[in-house]
Design a protein around this nucleic acid. Structure first.
Lengths: 241, 241
DNA sequence: ACAAAAGTGTTAAAACTACACCCATGG
DNA sequence: CCATGGGTGTAGTTTTAACACTTTTGT
């Protein structure tokens, strides 16, 4: 598949300006009540005394996603989380220190897996989406707003809420999560009917007894979940528009 | 809003590797029958004797979107087209000449506005989405596939098809467009009912007489269209999930 | 025994799908 | 006059939204 490149072509490359490339992650977590975002006061390599997203630099030996995964791991100790590219920000003065193009990712994590000791080092703190600090670094506020928008958009059409919950969870927990995402309330009969109609959940024998009556635990049917995720585009492009 | 940055912080910036940043555009056009993508053999600054997307380099005095708009203008003579960021590609060896991060945009253009003379210079050519050349530069094939996927996804949920048609068009034309996008056929009664139920179209007095009977021309109600586009997220996040 | 949260069913309205005939005109 | 493509309506089915009472159990 190799092609011959003329000297001229290669020369055009070397004339070009190069830019710093950063990765920033909007990390969502759900504490059972509120949807939260993880902010840091100071990344290991980062710099400034303002709340900001977790970020870092693109490494020469990594592609974008890998770099984002590495940074997430360094700062939270988490691996194999749901991570999706959100948008790339490149305004000239978005970073006043030096022009930087930042590729933003958003992550959905299960807070039970989150090891707070790892990120204490980085002065990380969870903030409810409705109570963000007033001052946030650079354009990170914009990134956060876009991430929330996209999370809502995706969650309305695809079953990705599970990513924010423990392996076993109850329907009322799931409903609280969706209510936190959409900042609204749902009718529980309609909600559970809709969720169960996907057949993505397996009802377990056990109950979680944090309430008086206790609620049945459910688990994601991983097989169907994968298929479902892979087919959502078919699902959307099928109907008579 | 200025903050004090320590010397240390700024030093961390200067240690970092910088990268080439490119912009590539997937340009969609509709010829009344097929959905097409515009490919070039050789951009002005580009290089290689293979079909590729229109692309160029990020300029120091432009943000990403502006650079993408400029490149599109240089190569097609088009301004103010529908342009949306698609995804950022950054695999290590995606460009074998030098490591380049490429921000891909997709554009929807009205072929009536397209001045083919401008892009003859660049050896541009329209290809039906179903008949792409076998060999396409770098990862541009991947970009194209993702763009088609996203176009279908968005078109199924949002009324953006209009961007590909002239100001005045008929329902049958619009239907052909959607059939080309989704590579399927629709029932014309259901289709027109669905389209008209949005109240986004204004029926004009004139008819287009390319068929024997002639079909009524319609125009987008720009006011409602803007509102609709701005509110689609509400629309999606509202339903009881 | 009662408060608190879980679980469950019905009905009316709206949306969707499938389907067939008449209309206007240019050749 | 007839072939071509444009235009329109209805009925059955599915999906959605609104709504209230019973169950369990810890205190």
């Amino acid at each position: 598949m190799r092609k011959k490149y003329s000297m001229l072509d290669i020369a055009s490359y070397s004339k070009q300006t190069k830019y710093l490339v950063a990765l920033d992650s909007i990390i969502f977590g759900f504490d059972g009540n509120q949807l939260n975002i993880l902010l840091v006061k100071r990344g290991p390599d980062s710099t400034i005394d303002t709340w900001s997203l977790m970020g870092g630099w693109l490494a020469e030996n990594e592609n974008l996603e890998l770099s984002a995964e590495r940074i997430l791991y360094e700062l939270t100790g988490l691996k194999e989380v749901y991570l999706e590219q959100l948008y790339t920000f490149g305004d000239i003065h978005r970073d006043p220190i030096a022009r930087t193009v930042s590729v933003a990712y958003f992550a959905l994590i299960n807070v039970e897996h989150y090891d707070s000791s790892v990120s204490e080092v980085h002065h990380a703190q969870w903030f409810p989406v409705s109570e963000m600090p007033a001052e946030i670094l650079f354009d990170h506020r914009q990134m956060i707003d876009l991430a929330i928008q996209k999370l809502r958009y995706k969650a309305a059409l695809h079953p990705l809420g599970f990513e924010l919950l423990p392996e076993k969870f109850t329907i009322p927990q799931l409903q609280k999560l969706y209510e936190a995402i959409f900042q609204t309330t749902f009718d529980k009969r309609n909600f559970s009917r809709k969720i169960l109609s996907t057949h993505l959940l397996v009802k377990l024998k056990e109950k979680q007894k944090s309430s008086k009556k206790g609620a049945y635990l459910y688990q994601v049917n991983e097989e169907k979940y994968k298929t479902y995720s892979n087919s959502f585009l078919n699902f959307v492009s099928n109907p008579e528009f």
